[in-house]
Amino acid sequence: MFPCVLVYNYGEIMEINTIGLTAAITAFLSIWIGHVAVRKIEAASPVIWIPTVASILLGLVTEYCSLLTNNLHLKTAFGIIGVTLLWDALEFTRQQKRIIKGHAPANPNNPRHARILANSNFHATTHDLLKREPSGKRFTHN
């Protein structure tokens, strides 16, 4: 799967260790995909307990796969993906809190978000306030 790469180092042949590279790529991609997936699924799902439970189960299965495999690269990748999925389960609730605070755009077509938008105690909005370029100045509504 990963070719053994050798480099010449001060007269000695040393092996390149790609296990860290596997971990770095897995961490980056799983966080990226998880980040986007949580936002999209939370915006579309009428209830958050289903994606939360699904994410927990997937995370646990992935961690079990990490235990079963003897391939060190797969073991590492599954370990990181599993923990990311378990964290994503928590992120569904955190994302809903962002919607309530208006820090993430609410989806008016989602009945759960529509209820949040209708509640005057919340600051929910359909606008994505983060979708702008930094100006270097404090943002004002004027």
């Binding site: 480099v7 260790n17 961490a27 980056f28």
Partner: peptide
């Protein structure tokens, strides 16, 4: 940092250093 991790032979240290690198990239 991720590039430097390639030269670390200890798997634990190699992974920890590489993930620190990934954190900077993220």
């Amino acid at each position: 940092i991720i590039g430097a991790s390639l030269f670390i032979q200890n798997n634990w240290l190699c992974v920890i250093i590489a993930v620190i690198g990934a954190t900077f990239v993220w």
